[in-house]
Design a protein around this nucleic acid. Structure first.
Lengths: 197, 197, 197, 197
DNA sequence: AATGAATGAGCCTTCATTCAT
DNA sequence: GATGAATGAAGGCTCATTCAT
C-alpha cells in the first residue's frame, strides 16, 4: 500500500487523473505532453502506462467521470416529486452549479471531445445523447401539459440551455461578482421565462 | 496574374486560407499539419511561408475575417431605425444565420482560440469584447426603457445567447429538419421571450 | 504439485518454454514481449523471472533443447553398423524429418541465433561446430574409402546439405503435397547422388 | 547540389541506404535503431524521413535492389544460347557469386524478410516467386529433354539449391580458403551432379 | 515568387527488468 | 513461489520552420 502513494496519500491513478485534468483544461489536450502529466503527478511514464493504455484513455476516463456525475444528478432532479416547472428549474440550475464546481472537467468536456479516438468519441456521444433526451423529456412533459409554450421544438430548447452551460467555461471566473448559485439561478430563470406560454 | 494563381483563378493566399479553414474545422488546428494545408491548396511549403509568417498567422487571419464580418453586421442591425426589440431580434437572429453560413469558421472560432499565440489571443479577445459590448448595449437600452425585464444582468443575457450560438457547430447539420433561418428565428424568439417583463 | 501447475498438468517452466517457442517462431524473438509470453503461458512476470534469469535465457534453453536432440540422433545414426552410404543417407534424412517435426524450433534456430547474448551465442556455435564435424566425418569417411566423390571439399558438402535443412522452415507446409518423410528421402537422395563418384 | 552531399560526394538517400544495409546485416533489423542509421550516414532523422516513409521502407528498398539485380542476372543466363545444362550451371554459379559479392544484402534478405510490413512482405514474396519459377523452368526443361534426372520434383531441387545460397551468409568468410568463384563452381557442380540421370 | 532538402526538438509508446510484499 | 507496480532508457516518428537556390 505504501508503494501506491508518494508525497501524499493519493493513489497513483488518481494523481495522474488530477494532473491530467488540470493540464488539459489549462492548455488543451494536444498541447499537454505525457511528460508534463507524469511530472505533475510525480511519477514516471511507465507508471502512467501501467494504469492507462494511452493518453487518449486518460481523456476518456475524465469524460466518464463527468458523464456519470451529471447523469446521476439529472436523474435525481427529474425523478423528484414536484411540479414539472420546478423539476426543470432545479435540473437546469443544478447542471450549472455542478459545471462551475468542476470547471476544469467542463472546459475539457466541451473542448476536447473531438480529440478522442473515433470509437471512444462515439461512445461518449451515445451517453451524452441519453442525457440530452432525459432533459428534453422534461420539457416535452411541460409542453404536453400546457405549462410550457410549444412554440419552440424541445430539442432546440435543450440545445439553447446547454449552449449557455457549455459557454460558462469561457467567461465565468470564481472571483467575479456572481456566485455559482446566482449564475445558476439566473440561467434557470431565463430558461423558464423563455418557456412561459 | 499568372504567377499568383494556378489550376483555378483563385490567388494563392486565398487558396491557402480556404484549405486551412476546412482542415482546421475538420480535424482541429493542432492536428492539421502545414504539409496537409499546402497539399490541399496545391502549393508548396515555401509558398505558404512566403505569404504567412507562421501557421499561427493563418489561424489569426481566419479569426480576423470572422470578427470583421460579425462586427459589421451587428453594427448595421444595431444602428437601424427600429424599436429596440426589433433591433435586438434582428441582430440575434442574424448572428445565427451568419454563423450557420460559415460553420467552419465558427467551429474554429470557438474551439481554437486558445491555440493562438498569447499576444494574438489577447488581440482577439479585445475585439470580441467590443462586439459583446455592442450587443449588451442593446439589451441595456431595452431594460432602461422598460421593454425588457431587468431581472437578469445584461452581461449574463449576452452570454446566454452567445452560448447557444457557440453551441451551434456542435449540433447543427444543414441536412437536418430546420433551415438556418428557422433556427435563427427560434433562438431569437427564445431570447426575446426570456426578456419579456 | 499444486503449486507448479495450473489449468493443466504441465509445470510452469515447460508452459513458459512452449509459449515462448510458439511466439518466437511466429513473430520473432525481438517482436515478442515478455508480457505476451507470460500471458500465453497463463502466468505472471514474476513467475517467469523466478524460473529464468532473462528473456535471453528462454531462447538459450530452446537452443539447448534442439542441439541436444539433434546431436543425439546424429550420433545414433552415425554409430550404426551399416555401410557409410547408408549411414549418411539415414543421418541426412533424419535431420530433415526431425526438423520438420519441430518446425518452430527450427525456425527459431536459424533465425534468432544472433539475438543471443554474445557469450551464449558463442557457446551455441561451439556445440553447433561439434555437430557439423560429426557429419563431415561421415562424408570424409566415404571419400577416403572411395564410395563418395572427392571433387568437393567435405565442409562444403555439409554446408550444402544444411543449407537445405535451414531453408525448410521458409517453404515447407505440413498441408502441402509432400510428407516430411518424402521430403527427407528426396533431400537425402539429392545429397547421395551429388556425391556419386 | 552541394546540399545533398556532405563529407563525400554521395547523395543522402544512398548514404542512408548504405548505412542501413551495413547495420541491418551486422546486428539485425530490429536491433538497429533509426538513430544509429542516421548517425552512421551523418544526417539527422528528419532527413531520413524526408526520403523514406519509415524504417520499414528502408528495408524494402534494400530488398528491391537485390531482387532487381538477381532477376536481371538470372534472366540473362537463362536466355543465353547454350545447352540447358550449361545455362543451369551458369545461373546456379552466378547467383552464388553475386550473393557473395553482396553478402550484406544477402544476410538481410534471408534473415529479415518477415520483419517487413505484411503488405510489403507479400509483394516481395510475389517477386521472389517469379524468380523461383524462372529457375525451376530451367530444371524442368532439362528433365523433359532427359539431360536431368526426373527423380526429384523440380520445385524441391530449386529449394535445395537456394537453401545453400541462403546459408552462405552463415559460414562464408572472404578471408577463408575458397574464393567466391571457387565456392560458386563447387555448389553448381554439386547441383549438376545431383541431377545426373 | 517559390522550391524542397534538412533541421532539431519533441511526441507517444514499449519493454525488460527489479523489488517490496 | 509468485505478484504486479514502478522504473528508466530507448524506440520510431512528426512537424513547424529555415535557407540556399
Amino acid at each position: 500500500m505504501a508503494r501506491t502513494t508518494e508525497g501524499d496519500g493519493t493513489p497513483v491513478p488518481q494523481r495522474l487523473l488530477a494532473a491530467a485534468t488540470r493540464l488539459f483544461a489549462e492548455r488543451g489536450y494536444d498541447r499537454t505532453s505525457v511528460q508534463e502529466i507524469v511530472e505533475a503527478a510525480g511519477v514516471t511514464k511507465g507508471a502512467l502506462y501501467h494504469y492507462f493504455g494511452s493518453k487518449d484513455d486518460l481523456l476518456h476516463e475524465i469524460y466518464g467521470r463527468v458523464l456519470r456525475l451529471q447523469q446521476e444528478r439529472l436523474d435525481a432532479f427529474a425523478d423528484a416529486d414536484a411540479p414539472v416547472e420546478q423539476r426543470l428549474r432545479d435540473a437546469a440550475a443544478d447542471v450549472v452549479v455542478t459545471t462551475l464546481e468542476h470547471l476544469d472537467d467542463a472546459t475539457i468536456f466541451f473542448r476536447s471531445m473531438h480529440q478522442l479516438s473515433p470509437e471512444k468519441h462515439k461512445q461518449v456521444r451515445v451517453e451524452r445523447r441519453r442525457y440530452h433526451e432525459r432533459f428534453r423529456a422534461l420539457i416535452e412533459e411541460g409542453q404536453r401539459t400546457g405549462v410550457f409554450s410549444s412554440r419552440t421544438p424541445a430539442d432546440l430548447v435543450v440545445d439553447y440551455h446547454f449552449g449557455s452551460v457549455h459557454h460558462l467555461s469561457t467567461w465565468y471566473r470564481p472571483e467575479g461578482p456572481l456566485s455559482g448559485r446566482e449564475v445558476a439561478d439566473h440561467l434557470a430563470d431565463l430558461l423558464l421565462r423563455a418557456l412561459r406560454p
